[in-house]
Design a protein around this nucleic acid. Structure first.
Length: 482
RNA sequence: CUGGGUGUGGCGCAGUUGGGAGCGCGCUACCUUGGGGUGGUAGAGGCCGCAAGUUCAAGUCUUGUCACUCAGACCA
């Protein structure tokens, strides 16, 4: 049973999301010690707790990539301007937000260097050297690195001038194989979001207007934040042979013919941490999906100065540590302070352990999601904790899925679209003729509702475009985005 | 880029007609503390964003500048 007086105090520390979602978000980032601002605009300091989340994400994803046959490499962080300019669409897309290096020490460089905003060009330059024969294909490379994009508006994790990510860049013998890779990696992201982050999402294909610079197809995973706003959670691109032609990457095929390989790229970034915060968090702070929580179990000793309490708690910690990331907090902060602290930091499961429990061979288990306290026996404590963590994951996923469903609305005509865009938050499903003009018009009249994607799971809501009334080609999911 | 807001101990803020730089939290030491931010005593800590100007005197007035932040626009 939650104490009212105490609830009030918590709210004083963290702005309620109903009052001001943006402020709530910033409060969580700071109070949960995920990140801090730095002296360079748009660049953040990812603090140990936030970085710990990133490390767990990396670890999980990296294993998935490797199971699918990918290898990690590291490319330089500087791109000569001439190299960036090789592919026309690409440079037009990125040049406006590049950071440029013009000096090396005291000397002006003869050619300025872009700090990588993405590494397609670097990979292509390298691939040109190492791909000669069909026997050299496929090349399945990935790199974990930082990139820089000089953004005008920045927010911690969601949009920062420098961010951490992974970018996969692959080369294939045939179009079919490359297209298959593109979808395979999107599926990989989808699985990761669902099974590791407990975040449901809409997956599909970007419209022509929203595609990546230089891509033939861009696929995307679009989770919905708690307030109904979308976040582009990851993308997977099929490039065809556009870049390979621009970079003159060729190989000799099985019939001794010179051909261009087909290319893909795909990436996810530290933005996912923003997605975790905004999907799962509540007014008491962060809630972390157990799979990536730096601390899965917070063990709080009660009356720790009493004889034997810390020793018993230490033994319990050691037992749990064989299977979980557990922290025994024996600092001299008060128990109440500790409870609040670990809730704020989103630790999925808390154990309270004191003299009474020692006597009864049990401890008190508290879920971060429900905050319900249950007494569990120490005999099967590992199983109990494991089950509790699984429940947290499932509850988080279900809660987010309910939110996604509840905030998704169908619009059958223009007026309905406008009404929903104005009065509701969330996704709008509506038919579309395929013209960019209609996309732009809808965005303008609604003040920012854009096409998220053409989902894989389409439904024929009606026969005509919601905007112009011409025959519809696709169902599109629309929404505002971060 | 456009518009709004804010710059004062680590954080959050107050500072009246221009004249003593303060409060809360946190921090340090000691004591206290049994199940939701425990209570007490003592203490440390400040180029008032930066620059110029007005004045006998500027945290306060003027001008400029920089930074951060929020909302838009932009975001391959």
């Amino acid at each position: 049973m939650a104490d009212k007086k105490n609830d009030k105090k918590m709210v004083e520390q963290i702005t309620s999301m109903e009052v001001d979602f943006a402020q709530w978000y910033t409060d969580i980032v700071k109070k949960a010690e995920l990140a801090d601002y730095s002296s360079v605009k748009g660049c953040m300091i990812i603090r140990p707790y936030g970085y710990g989340i990133w490390e767990n994400i990396q670890h999980d994803l990296d294993a998935r990539f490797k199971r699918l046959g990918h290898e990690n490499v590291y490319m330089p962080m500087f791109i000569p301007e001439s190299l960036l300019q090789r592919e026309k669409d690409h440079v037009e897309g990125f040049a406006p937000e590049c950071a440029w290096v013009t000096f090396g020490g005291e000397n002006r460089l003869t050619e300025r260097l872009a700090v990588r905003p993405t590494s397609e060009t670097l990979f292509c330059e390298h691939y040109k050297k190492i791909i000669q024969s069909y026997r050299d294909l496929p090349k399945l490379y990935n790199q974990w690195c930082n990139v820089v994009r000089w953004e005008k508006t920045t927010r911690p994790f969601l949009r920062t001038a420098e961010f951490l990510w992974q970018e996969g860049h692959t080369m294939h013998e045939t179009e079919e194989e490359a297209r298959e890779e593109t979808l395979k990696m999107l599926k990989c992201y989808e699985d990761f979001y669902r099974d590791t982050l407990a975040i449901p999402a809409v997956v599909g294909r970007k419209t022509e207007k929203e595609k990546f610079a230089g891509a033939i197809e861009t696929y995307t995973i679009e989770p919905m934040m708690h307030n109904g706003v979308a976040l582009q959670g990851g993308t997977s691109h099929y490039f065809g042979d556009g870049f390979t032609k621009a970079f003159d990457i060729t190989f000799t095929d099985r019939e001794n013919k010179i051909r261009y390989p087909h290319q893909t790229s795909w990436g996810v970034s530290t933005r996912m941490i923003g997605a975790i915060i905004m999907t799962h968090g509540d007014d008491n702070g962060l809630i972390l999906p157990p799979a990536i929580a730096p601390i899965q179990v917070a063990l709080i000793p009660i009356a720790q100065h009493k004889e034997g309490v810390l020793e018993a708690a230490g033994a319990l910690r050691d037992k749990l540590a064989e299977k979980f990331r557990v922290k025994l907090d024996d600092s001299d902060y008060s128990t109440g302070w500790k409870f609040s602290q670990y809730e704020m930091k989103g630790v999925p499961v808390r154990l309270e352990f004191g003299p009474r429990d020692i006597e009864n061979n049990c401890c008190v288990l508290v879920s971060r999601v429900t905050r319900e306290k249950t007494v569990v026996s120490l005999d099967n404590i590992v199983d109990e904790v494991e089950a509790a963590l699984k429940r947290v994951h499932d509850e988080l996923y279900q809660r987010a899925l309910d939110n996604l469903k509840n905030r998704t609305h169908n619009a059958l005509n223009y007026q309905e679209f406008l009404d929903i865009a104005e009065k509701q938050s969330g996704f709008i499903r509506a038919m579309w003729c395929g013209d960019t003009e209609c996309e732009e018009k809808l965005k303008d009249v609604t003040g920012g509702v854009k096409s998220r994607c053409i989902p894989f799971e389409e439904e024929q809501l009606s026969d005509t475009c919601v905007c112009c009334g011409k025959p519809a080609k696709h169902m599109v999911v629309w929404g505002r985005q971060y």
